[in-house]
C-alpha cells in the first residue's frame, strides 16, 4: 500500500520536474552564451499548443514532439533576430515574447480546448521496468523524461569538455575578447538561443502530450518562470539544474499529497512561492558566503554586442 503511494509520488515528481529541467537546460545554454531570454514561458506555450495540434491532426506523438521543438525554435529565432541582429533590449524583448506566446497559443489552441489526445507512449525497458519501485520510476517513462536526463549529461559534457562548449562559455564571459580572437559571437549566440527554444518547446510538448495530455489555455502556469529561476538557483551548472528541478518539482507534489492527507495545512499559494523563495535564499547565501561575488553568472549576460567591422 505505502509502496504504491511512494511510487505514485515519485512518478508525479518526475512529471513535475521534467518540463522544468528541459526548459532550464535550454535557458542555461543560452545564458552561458550571454543571452538572457525571459521568453521561456512563451516558448513553452508555443511548443505545448503546436505539439498538441500536430498530434491531433496527424495522430502521431513523434510528429507532435518534433513540431513542438520547431515551434519553440521559431519563437527563439524571433527573439534572436530582435535582440542579436536588431539589438533590442533583451529583458523587454523576452517579456514581450512571453506575452506574445500566451496570446498566440490561446488563439491557435482555441479549437482544441477539451479535445483528448493519446499520451506519449511509455518506453518500458524490458525486465528492468518490472523491478519494484525503481522499475516504474526509472525505467517506465516516456521518451522526453529519458531525454531530459540524457540532455543534462550532454549539456554538462558539452560545456566543460568540448571545444565548442569552451568557446560558448568564452562568448558569454567576454564577447569583446572572443570577437577579437576571431569567434563569430553573434552566430554562436543564435545557436545557443535556438537550442533554448528547442528545449522550451520540448518542455511544452511534455506538458500537453504527457503530463496532462490535453490543451488548456495558459497551461504552463508559470513553469517557464520557475525554469528561469532554476538556472540562477543552479548557478548555471547543468547537474545542479537537475537537482533543482527535482527539488522544485517535489515541493509542488509533496504539497498536493500533504494537503489531501491533511498532514500540513498550508495554503497552496504559499507552497507555489517556494521555488522563488528558494532561489532568493540561494542567491543570498551565495552572495554573502565565502564565494562572495562569484555567483558564476556569465559576465556578459544580457549585454548586447555590436561588433565594429
Amino acid at each position: 500500500m505505502s509502496t504504491t503511494i511512494l511510487v505514485a509520488s515519485l512518478l508525479t515528481i518526475i512529471g513535475a520536474a521534467t518540463p522544468l529541467l528541459l526548459a532550464a537546460l535550454g535557458e542555461l545554454v543560452a545564458e552561458r552564451s550571454g543571452v538572457l531570454n525571459l521568453g521561456v514561458e512563451g516558448m513553452m506555450l508555443a511548443g505545448a499548443v503546436t505539439g498538441f495540434a500536430a498530434t491531433m491532426l496527424t495522430g502521431s506523438g513523434t510528429v507532435g514532439v518534433i513540431a513542438a521543438a520547431v515551434a519553440g525554435m521559431a519563437m527563439a529565432l524571433l527573439f534572436g533576430v530582435l535582440t542579436l541582429s536588431l539589438l533590442s533590449n533583451q529583458v523587454a524583448t523576452g517579456l514581450a515574447l512571453t506575452i506574445f506566446g500566451v496570446g498566440l497559443s490561446a488563439l491557435v489552441g482555441s479549437g482544441f480546448v477539451g479535445s483528448p489526445v493519446a499520451p506519449l507512449p511509455k518506453l518500458a525497458l524490458p525486465g528492468l521496468s518490472q523491478l519494484p519501485i525503481v522499475g516504474p520510476v526509472l525505467f517506465g517513462q516516456d521518451f522526453l523524461v529519458y531525454l531530459s536526463w540524457a540532455m543534462t549529461a550532454a549539456v554538462a559534457w558539452f560545456l566543460t569538455r568540448t571545444r565548442p562548449g569552451m568557446i560558448l562559455r568564452a562568448v558569454g564571459e567576454s564577447h569583446e575578447a572572443a570577437h577579437a580572437i576571431g569567434y563569430p559571437v553573434i552566430r554562436i549566440r543564435y545557436l545557443a538561443v535556438l537550442f533554448g527554444g528547442l528545449m522550451a518547446g520540448l518542455a511544452g510538448a511534455f506538458l500537453s502530450l504527457s503530463y496532462t495530455p490535453m490543451w488548456v489555455e495558459d497551461m504552463s502556469a508559470g513553469r517557464g518562470w520557475i525554469a528561469l529561476a532554476l538556472v540562477v538557483f543552479a548557478a548555471w551548472r547543468p547537474w545542479r539544474a537537475l537537482i533543482g528541478a527535482y527539488l522544485f518539482g517535489g515541493v509542488t507534489i509533496i504539497q498536493l499529497h500533504a494537503q489531501t492527507s491533511g498532514i500540513i495545512n498550508v495554503p497552496a499559494q504559499v507552497m507555489s512561492m517556494l521555488p522563488y523563495l528558494a532561489t532568493i535564499a540561494v542567491l543570498v547565501a551565495i552572495s554573502a558566503g565565502p564565494w562572495r561575488g562569484r555567483l558564476n553568472a556569465p559576465a556578459c549576460l544580457g549585454v548586447p554586442f555590436r561588433p565594429a567591422t
Binding site: M166, I167, A170, A177, A178, A180, I181, A299
Partner: peptide
C-alpha cells in the same frame, strides 16, 4: 586591453586563442 576571459583558466584562455 587583453582579450582574456577572467573566469576561465590560463590553459583555456590559451586554447581559445
Amino acid at each position: 586591453h587583453f582579450s582574456l576571459f577572467e573566469a576561465m583558466s590560463v590553459l583555456e584562455n590559451v586554447a581559445l586563442g
